[in-house]
Amino acid sequence: MRVVESINRALHDLMETNSRLVILGEDILDPYGGAFKVTKGLSSAYQDRVWTTPISEGGIVGMAAGLALKGRPVIVELMFGDFIALAADQIINHAAKFRWMYNDQVEVPVIIRAPMGGRRGYGPTHSQSLEKHFCGVPGLTVLATHEYADPGALLHRAFAARSPHLIIENKVMYARPVLGTAALPRPPDADIVIVTYGGCVEHAVAAAAKLAAEEEIATTVVAVEQLSPFPYEDVQRQVGNCTRVVAVEEGSPGWGFGSECARALIGRVKYFSALAGPDHPIPSSREWEDDVLPGVSAIQAACLDLFRKG
């Protein structure tokens, strides 16, 4: 099963078992079934509860919060994660705040699914990884799906929590097969640990395989599923006694995933480095995009560099 099918199946299951659940998004009706086909078949099966919307990301996230507040849970699909900036106020000042601000008198079961990431040549406004801007928002849980776990189960977990969740889905990953946690490299007594999430996981796994084959460097990949609140203790536990850690993310450098990894591991590891995307917008040119997003060779080089330090 591919990632897109895993999420699609979970959406079907949730719609089947929750008769009040509504799915909202742009161009999600059949036969199109969403820009990345994640919602395919849903509007045919649940005609009354799958609503295609105007192009109004702020409006639909706000409407979702209102529906959820009064007993109708909602899963919102943003066509491109880049468009989440248009919904920032609704997420930060409304959906994520209501429960606490209203003294726990309400709950807001809203899930926002956001396809993020580059490597498809979509250029500066359709290739970003904007999730860090929504991490650290009180009341909002940010998850990132990856194929070395169970994307459908992640959606079920988010739904069961009955609180605002943002799920980052990587566009390239939709077509990848679901491999499960057992496929992550976790050699005993690893020389290096790569901590990463989302679309970078597959590149980290490929880099780990090359490091093992070419350099006999044992590399563990820790794939983080919950970005915010950051699971400090879980990351510490997974890194264990290893003294070298490379953090990898696709978003812009600074104030992001690498910083949180460093915070979790400060005083625990001897050597730490962080890889990120460019500090300028994502270029449209395929070669240029490949050059600036952290891929297999960049991750491998960063690991080798750390290994040679001691």
Partner: peptide, 14 residues
Amino acid sequence: GGTTPVAVGTALAR
């Protein structure tokens, strides 16, 4: 203005 779309959602819910 932020509550306006939320109001729309609550009206639809009920």
